[in-house]
Design a protein around this nucleic acid. Structure first.
Lengths: 229, 229
DNA sequence: AAGTGGTCTAGACCACGAA
DNA sequence: TCGTGGTCTAGACCACTTA
């Protein structure tokens, strides 16, 4: 059986969809709804609070609970491990290290990560493979000031992603999605023509305010990131 | 002042980051933590429940609360009205209707929306403008069986998006993000070369299980969808 | 000043699931 | 079987916001 607060949630949502309360209108107070549903006010509170978090309602002390003029729309995009993403497709996962080099952070990297220009970084190029075909090309930069132990990692058997998650499981990140034209190296590894349109994700990661890693993930031609809301 | 459950949340999160509890380890029971924090068990429950929803913890009856092996990573992507997105950039929003025609649903549309092939649809091409420059090209299909009143809308002054949100504020959608090469018409309206890599979003929307609308949004060259997590 | 949501408490019973 | 989280209650006080 469903719990009381969930019943209230779906009932209120149904009444919203039927148009019982229009955009901008005020719903009954928690106390009134608690009386109507014959339950405690906290139970109504939880139902309405969650509906507000989900973007349907707006709540304010004193003025009450209103229907959002424009329901706040947001989609949740899962950020799985590449290995999990590939195996979830029913494909066999493979990994190849293409290049590994220590370097000084170039200006553009310092700029988008907030680290010092010239700071020591580890630069990796990796190819993730699904059922023998290219899946994702990873261009990874790791701040060696933040993660000196990365020097001791070969990253020849598993991607840096998995090591990073094990090493710093809690971090903040900024992520961007866009389109990019394949350059020579990505065209070669992703087996497409130079200039082809490819889906790309860029992620900068910080731990405790300090820059840790920057990655540019370029997906194989035809890749679509999908979700529901 | 911060509330008790929020203090507990940030304290537990800090202890997780310090490594007090490693991945897979079990945290104290709610009752124990309530005693330690000198508060009611419900208060601890709310803190831990929210941390679980945010992907840090896993909770199971009887076996307790554990630290997720791999913190569940997901990013929330806002889906604003185009008008709001543009004005949020500090730019002036503009809109042009490029084409408007009634048609029978082609097979590919029927396929990705789940409507009948040949069902009556309204097909719109629109250009959204920011500060006089192209921002987004909208290729919109509206199911006239679901929304017959769309016939009476000219969509010459405002985009179909705004009318749709006012008409069916509650709906389910499936959304995909990817890269596409500019074809002739999009190259012309987005002022780029044919074949240029463009960021594209496709969204299918249902109301009460029935297909309502399908849209393909192609953004101007260089557009990036950004978020944090 | 007063109304509304935000949070907390102490206690209770239940549902799930591991042993 | 029985320990753990999931939920509910009745009552309380507080914080914010509008009037």
């Amino acid at each position: 059986m469903s719990s009381t607060y969930q019943k209230i949630k779906s009932d209120v949502l149904a009444r919203l969809m039927e148009g019982e309360w229009r955009a901008g209108e005020t719903l009954p107070t928690e106390a009134d709804m608690a009386a109507a549903y014959e339950c405690a006010r906290v139970t109504v509170n939880r139902a309405l609070r969650e509906l507000a978090e989900e973007g349907y309602l707006e709540r304010r002390r004193k003025s009450g609970t209103r229907v959002r003029a424009v329901p706040e729309r947001s989609a949740r995009v899962e950020i799985p491990l590449i290995r999990d993403e590939v195996t979830a497709l029913g494909a066999t996962y493979g990994y190849t290290l293409v290049a590994r080099a220590e370097a000084d952070a170039p200006a553009w990297l310092a700029d988008c990560m907030g680290c010092a220009e010239g700071a020591p970084v580890l630069h990796l190029l990796c190819l993730h493979v699904a059922d023998g075909g290219p899946y994702l090309f990873e261009d990874r930069w790791i701040c060696l000031d933040a993660l000196p132990h990365a020097r001791e990692q070969g990253f020849s058997e598993a991607g840096p992603n998995e090591w990073l998650i094990a090493t710093i499981p809690f971090s903040n990140a900024e992520i961007g999605f866009g389109a990019t034209a394949a350059d020579e190296i990505r065209a070669r590894h992703l087996q497409c023509a130079e200039g082809d349109a490819l889906f790309e994700a860029q992620r900068s990661t910080w731990f405790d305010g300090a820059p840790v890693t920057y990655v540019r993930l370029t997906y194989r031609p035809g890749y679509w990131m999908r979700t529901r809301y």
